[in-house]
Amino acid sequence: MRYAMLIDTKKCVGCSDCVVACQNENRVPIGYCRDWVIEHAKGTFPNVSIELRSERCNHCENSPCVRCCPTGASHYEEGGLVMVDRGACIGCGACVQSCPYNARYSHPDGFVDKCSFCNHRLEEGKNPSCVSVCPTSCMYFGDIDDEQSQLSQLLKNRTWKVLAPEVGTKPQIYYLT
């Protein structure tokens, strides 16, 4: 089993509902966020296009943050989740440096925090909170190893990309383009 997330950039309207849902669900301190929306405009006027992306920790298969952690606080869990053990984190900042997506932040309480794919909800069989609140249903969550999952089917039939694949982290958030 390998958890992955898929976001349809053609359906996303950039409302930031996913951001607010996450902040509520995970009690993210005020002024911080675990997920965020990027508006990426490119082209030559008048031929311009805008891509909207909801971004977060990519739960990479080859995670530099897990590799560089000196205490083992950053670790893999079942389904490929990249998690932080708060009790083992000394807040050295190495993992923050190691993430090409800058997905981690230093929590005011002294540990490093980031998206957990709402693993407490996954245990109850629910989707991550960002996925479940999305008003345009542009986000999908599932098992990428299961060929019958909606996520796998979409990846088979649509064009997609991952962010900064050249860094070699094997990110597990896919964007339909």
Partner: peptide, 21 residues
């Protein structure tokens, strides 16, 4: 050809540029 990135993230010591150390 131009590219503009607008980010909704503003985490202390992370944005606009990293300064964790």
């Amino acid at each position: 050809n131009e590219e503009i990135l607008i980010s909704g993230r503003m985490n202390p010591h992370i944005d606009p540029t990293l300064g964790i150390w």
